[in-house]
Amino acid sequence: MDLSIELAGIHLRSPIVLASGTAGYAYEYDGIIDFSYVGAVIIKTVTMEPRSGHPEPRIWEVTAGVLNSIGLENIGIDALLSDVVPHVSNLDVPVIASIAAETAKGFARLASRIEEAGVFCALELNISCPNVERGGLEFGVDPKATSAVVSAVRENTSIPVFPKLSSAVTNIREIAEAAYIGGASGLSLINTIPGLAVDVASRRARLGGITGGLSGPAIKPIALKAVWDCYQATGLPIIGGGGVYDVQDVLEFMICGARAVSVGTATFQDPQGAGEIVEALPSCLEELGVDSPSRLVGTLET
């Protein structure tokens, strides 16, 4: 079965993508992950200046999930373009860049530099990171700010733009509509959900950043609802994810309206998990009586 999909004008050989921040700049996993199964890799969010991130510990395992407070540590756009781009162009997989900035203008400037590099097939706008004080969720919770960021980027770039939304908002439909009005080519969701873990003996937070972002199977039902809401509200192509672990999860996301599905935290347990999902997809789709992944998108019976 042909598993390829069209996603806002980009052609992906399979609907499975690797989520930002969980696959680094892709080349760290070269020789460990078989990229030939993967539709695209979304690389770690990059900012204008390098960021050193939060103090350790940055990772805490919780029931069916992981809390992280990386704090958007990244090498900055200059190092990305000089050091990472040469590796990226050697990989046999489309790469989507992810950017974050503190102002709409900052997003726009980063977007044009990403496009100039010529190796990224699309752009994710991280307006939903719970681990930064400024320029993260600040945008993602506010429809006006969302729309301003998206349109500023839109004016400066021609590659497809996917704002990445958070489910930690009062009404995600409003945010999705604002992104649509701003000119989004599609949507990506969900980012991690703000969370906290406590060590009773010391009465300290488990993470150096105190609070963190929750990912993994624990957040899947929340993510499914968010995808369904955004699909209904906008009809935009959606990269859906949050807690995806196996092929069953992928089918659920597609039924709720995701055209592509991201695998994040699950990669930590099994770097080859995304590949296994892709291998299992054809027979699962056949069982459901559809001859391509896109036929399943948004078919939730209500």
């Binding site: 921040g21 969980t22 696959a23 680094g24 700049y25 760290e28 996993y29 460990i32 770690k44 991130g53 103090p55 350790e56 510990p57 940055r58 990772i59 805490w60 395992e61 992981v66 992280n68 990386i70 540590e73 935290t265 990669t267 930590f268 770097p271």
Partner: peptide, 17 residues
């Protein structure tokens, strides 16, 4: 020793000062 997620330098989870 730090808590790790990916183990290969991809997630920045084990980074310390």
């Amino acid at each position: 020793a730090e808590r790790m997620a990916c183990g290969v330098g991809a997630c920045r989870g084990c980074v310390r000062r």
